[in-house]
Design a protein around this nucleic acid. Structure first.
Length: 865
RNA sequence: GCCCGAAUGGCGGAAUAGGUAGACGCCAGGGACUUAAAAUCCCUUGAUCGAAAGAUCGUCCCGGUUCGAGUCCGGGUUCGGGCACCA
């Protein structure tokens, strides 16, 4: 054993050992308990960033820990390789997206290997390879035949200068990010998956996911947004076509003073045909971004259609308005407006001077149409009652709801209906670098799925990419084909799938590498995933699609489980300050923090920043998650080169608990390196003194007994942190504390050395999942065994943890005043007596009468005077 | 705007079911070793008052519950994530 800790030497040795012994290649083995640990795969953006290091270290720690418990552990890795950044890079670097992507994958794989992650690379998936995406094309065609897929018009952001569809991210302040042109909303036909058909199951399934964080389940529940309400029709004046609306507040039916429809609603479009002013308004008001945050914060605007409906109970004449805050995609795209009890309607009615009618009251509150108050909309207020509503007066929400629904059902103009906020998933993207949607368009047969024996529809990779048009759209040869049903000349779909499509089922493909099917029977040995780890930013979209796809695959007979993953750890984001320069036209260029020099004020807050290369000023942006688009990712490679993988892994785990967000800062890495050197020296010092005798744990002196108790307390704490709490910073701190204790332990006798052997072995094994390279080397030196991977994780010996005396805290009036040491089996009375006899306690109690005495066994005494 | 989180020393963080606030580490200061540097080791380090013993204050803000609140409840502030075409 070398005297010096040389991370690069031992890391290379450990990694070759793992490679040579194929240590992480696993096979299905029904006789052993399996553990499938999955980390969200990276987008190959170029380099790993700290968020990846943190995510993958957590996964690797969990995998290695479970392996030390004897389980058959699968930990795969791959690349989510389709996506927008490849197209941007292709334009910037005048290369093909495929080439850029593959070279990034190559580099990132070397980084992952350098960090020592135990992946079974024989199962790797790269989602841009036809042998991967052919199976999602197959699934899509089956879903199409089954009726789970449909096509409808849907809105996209259109850049009129670049003549291209923009992602929301590419729209900045309503303008195209490259052209600067005002973005238009355009409706084009797109493919949708009927996720709403699974809305109820996706909702109910959350209750079975005990291993998922509550926050994620609550967010998903709210996102799915189940509501119960009434769907009914207004008779339209001078027309046979009724206006259908959905409401969750039938109890306020008598407060309806107008109806609002979405800008794209057929009624609005029809009315605009002979009303140029309205047509202008519809066009102008819809020329905004299509994202919800903008939608919710924009000014509410509307215009009357000049069409009237009849109130179904009062018979009153009610105008229809087009309103920019009504969503075409939710409910029926039309709502009954109750300005008296809906905040948005209230605001709208005040702006356009529409009548506001109070139909709900709360005892003791005064209604005022000039000012909105929260109780106006509080249907669950215990004092809430319906008023000014004829036969419904005096009812509470529930009863009024039921009565109104009953009346409408009787007359046949309405019915109770469950509605979901969740919308069907639009999967079409007007982009090149994605999986081609396997559909053929024929004049006669319309949209026909590509037959299974003609799959995959391969995306050409060797293309020139300018960013204006997708190369497959531009290539008439690629598009040209024949119709599978009638044989006539036909054209291929040139849109590609949303990249969430690929990431929704990769967990399944990992289980069946090489299968000439989507998956084979191996999948049901490994699935469901036992532990899924990824960023909290995926709490809704990815994790919902992931669950949805699992159910689709189940219903196609590919998998047997209902949910894809039993346990989820949502890693907090690694965030970092952002820096940018702004051109005269407002275009921002994001600067990497590594290239910026910052000046701080006395309190350590940043004052100003400049470019390190030429000293030109740089603006300071917000502190945000590390991302390609904000260029604030920190490349871990420099740290790996300087300190080695173990130090980087140790620091990433020590810096904060896994689910907390972490503002990245390199300061502190030195401490992790120092700790590993200390560990190495400690073990070296011990081993270099030669072999040890057997420990006689029944006959220890007090110093030995105390060290051994500290050891077994630490083992219990660390095992709990790994297994139950999944909090590694405290596990590391506990081992550090133990090592501080060991440093003070004077070893003189042979039995001292025997005890130290036990301590060092346990320390090395406890740290092994986090720092496996040094673990590998030190375990060999200590035990003579070649492989720490399959060594058993230490088990705390309860007998060793029993102490003769304990220290109790004594409070007077809840304030800490003294400590007393007592035999650990002391009774409540003994404890109290000892506390009251304590000098300092007597001083604070003095001669005041004692009101209360509280004894918490093993913890404290509180004397209340 | 809506939904979900978070806030504790100079810094990262600990306090696990309401019971010792600041574990562990970083930074900083002082010292030892060394020709020197690196490395290593030891000590100090929440604030205020005090020579010390010690006392008082202190976990974003305001209020509440409790013998006892960083932790629970009500109201707010700020920051982060998501909002359906970034992944």
């Amino acid at each position: 054993m070398n005297q010096e800790y040389e991370p690069h030497v031992i890391e290379r040795a450990a990694q070759s050992f793992w490679t040579d012994t194929k240590a992480f290649e696993v096979k299905e083995d029904p006789s052993r308990e399996k553990y499938y640990c999955l980390s969200m795969f990276p987008y190959p953006s170029g380099k790993l960033h700290m968020g990846h290091v943190r995510n993958y270290t957590i996964g690797d720690v969990m995998s290695r820990y479970q392996r030390m418990l004897g389980k058959n552990v699968l930990q795969p890795m791959g690349f989510d390789a389709f996506g927008l950044p490849a197209e941007n890079a292709a334009i910037a670097n005048k290369t093909a997206p495929a080439k850029w992507t593959y070279s990034n994958i190559e580099y990132m794989k070397t980084q992952l290997s350098a960090l020592g992650f135990g992946y079974d690379w024989t199962r790797e998936v790269q989602t841009c390879r036809p042998d991967y995406y052919r199976w999602e094309q197959l699934l899509f065609t089956r879903l199409l035949k089954k009726g789970m897929v449909y096509r409808k018009d849907s809105v996209v952001n259109w850049d009129p200068i670049d003549q291209t569809v923009l992602a929301n991210e590419q729209v900045v302040d309503g303008r195209g990010w490259r052209s600067g042109a005002m973005v238009e909303r355009r409706s084009i036909p797109q493919w949708f998956l009927k996720i709403t058909a699974y809305a109820q199951e996706l909702l109910d399934g959350l209750d079975t996911l005990d291993g998922w964080p509550d926050s994620v389940k609550i967010m998903q529940r709210n996102w799915i947004g189940r509501s119960e309400g009434l769907e009914f029709s207004f008779a339209v004046e001078g027309s046979d076509e009724p206006l259908t609306v959905y409401t969750t507040r039938p109890d306020t039916i008598m407060g309806v003073t107008f109806a609002s429809v979405a800008l794209e609603h057929p009624f609005a479009l029809a009315a605009a045909r002979n009303n140029p002013e309205l047509a202008r308004f519809l066009k102008e008001a819809s020329a905004t971004s299509s994202c919800e945050a903008d939608f919710e914060t924009m000014e509410k605007r509307g215009m009357p259609l000049g069409i009237y409906v009849t109130h179904p109970i009062s018979g009153e004449r009610i105008p229809i308005w087009a309103a920019n805050f009504v969503l075409m995609g939710y409910g029926t795209g039309a709502v009954m407006a109750v300005p008296g009890h809906d905040e948005r309607d209230f605001e709208f009615a005040r702006k356009y001077d529409l009548p506001i009618k109070q139909v709900i009251t709360v005892e003791g509150e005064t209604y005022d149409t000039q000012r909105w108050q929260d109780w106006y909309a509080d249907k669950l207020h215990p004092e809430m009652k319906v008023v000014n509503s004829g036969e419904f007066d005096g009812l509470d929400f529930r009863r009024a709801f039921d009565e109104v629904v009953k009346r409408f059902e009787k007359t046949g103009i309405g019915a109770r209906r469950v509605n979901f906020r969740l919308r069907d998933w639009g999967v079409s993207r007007q982009r090149y670098w994605g999986c081609p949607i396997p559909v053929i368009y024929c004049d006669k047969c319309e949209a026909v799925p590509v037959p299974e024996d003609q799959l995959p529809v391969v995306l050409p990779e060797d293309v020139a990419f300018s960013g204006v048009q997708s190369p497959i759209k531009a290539d008439p040869e690629w598009r040209k084909t024949t119709c599978p049903s009638c044989g006539a000349p036909a054209e291929r779909e040139t849109d590609t799938f949303d990249t969430f499509f690929e990431s929704s089922w990769y967990h399944t493909r990992y289980t069946s590498p090489g299968a000439e099917q989507l998956v084979d029977e191996r999948a049901n040995y490994w699935l469901p995933v036992d532990q899924y780890i990824g960023g909290i930013e995926h709490a809704i979209l990815h994790l919902l699609y992931f669950r949805f796809f699992h159910k689709l695959m189940r219903d196609e007979g590919f998998v047997h489980s209902d949910e894809p993953a039993t346990h989820l750890l949502t890693q907090g984001m690694v965030i970092k300050e952002t820096y940018f320069t702004e051109a005269a036209d407002g275009q921002k260029t994001w600067i990497n923090p590594a290239d910026v020099e910052i000046e701080f004020d006395a309190k350590g807050h940043p004052l100003s920043a400049k470019l390190a290369s030429d000293g030109s000023p740089v603006q300071i942006g917000g502190i945000e998650k590390m991302s390609k688009s904000k260029n604030n990712g920190i490349d871990p490679q420099e740290l790996i080169d300087q300190y080695g993988a173990d130090t980087v892994r140790l620091f990433a785990m020590f810096a904060s608990p896994p689910d907390a967000s972490l503002e990245w800062n390199d300061a502190g890495v030195e401490g992790a390196a120092r700790f590993l050197r200390r560990l190495w020296r400690g073990v070296h010092g011990h081993v270099s003194q030669g072999p040890v005798e057997k420990l006689d744990s029944a006959h220890l002196n007090p110093a030995q007994k105390s060290l051994r108790a500290a050891l077994h307390d630490t083992i219990a704490k660390v095992a709990d942190d790994y297994g139950r709490r999944k909090q590694y910073n405290t596990a590391i701190a506990a081992v550090m504390e133990l090592m501080n204790t060991v440093a003070k332990f004077e070893d003189a006798s042979a039995q001292d050395r025997a005890l130290l052997q036990e301590v060092w072995e346990a320390v090395v094994l406890m740290l092994n999942p986090i720092v496996p390279h040094i673990g590998h080397a030190l375990w060999q030196a200590l035990s003579g065994q070649p492989n720490a991977l399959d060594a058993s994780f230490p088990v705390a010996e309860e007998a060793a943890r029993i102490k003769d005396t304990i220290t109790l805290v004594v409070q007077v009036n809840g304030k800490l005043r003294s400590r007393i040491e007592l035999a650990s089996e002391a009774s409540k009375e003994d404890i109290l007596a000892a506390a009251l006899a304590d000098e300092k306690v007597m001083k604070f109690v003095a001669d005041q009468p004692i009101k209360k005495k509280i004894v918490v066994p093993g913890k404290l005494v509180n004397i209340v005077v």
